[in-house]
Amino acid sequence: MKRKTILTLSSLAIIATVYLFAADHIDAPGVASTTSDITDFYAFQSPENNSNLVFVANVQGLLSPSATQSAAFDENVMIEFNIDNSGDNREDLVIQCYFLDDQLTVYGPVAPSFTGTTSTLETGASSTQVAVTPYGQQAIMGESNGIKVFAGPRDDPFFMDIAQYSEIIAGNATAFNNPGADTFAGTNVMSIVVELPKALIGGSGTINTWVTSNRKQ
């Protein structure tokens, strides 16, 4: 435990001082190490049901186990999955993840009132709720309208030898090590997982999708 904490601190030191190549962890000065910092985004067919798609958004990366105990989602930060199903890279549907009183409410998918960088909470849309799973407890799943939702701390699924990449970029090395060392080993993130029927977002074909974090005004 103590060793992991130290490892995480040294990872942070490396990451803070060199050019970054993480997924989206601490990507920009305005969001680095804040509650709105997105670390990763995944979208994949459900391993449990071929008719479903799964969206994952992770925030607040590089949490040591001790830091995870006190980590929480920010009620002033709404996480939004954006879906373009017409090929113009503008969102036709959004799924909004809103936290209040240790509870996640997921609105949508629904056509948003506004596109672009301003959002309003689509409270008229159908919603699915779940309690945020506390650290150390079994995952709690919320389900309604065929939509499954989860929110809580998880192991960071991202893996990379960012330390050696940093050495390469700094000119101190010319190649990766073999085997490499996963800089993100032993660290956690705050995760949101939403699984829904593909039929709710177009059914077939290809979508363009991205995730945003949005601060309450």
């Binding site: 997105i38 309003t120 909470l121 945003t212 949005n214």
Partner: peptide, 13 residues
Amino acid sequence: ITFLQEDQMGRPA
């Protein structure tokens, strides 16, 4: 309830 965007991500890195 209105929000302004702060972070955004599509593909990794």
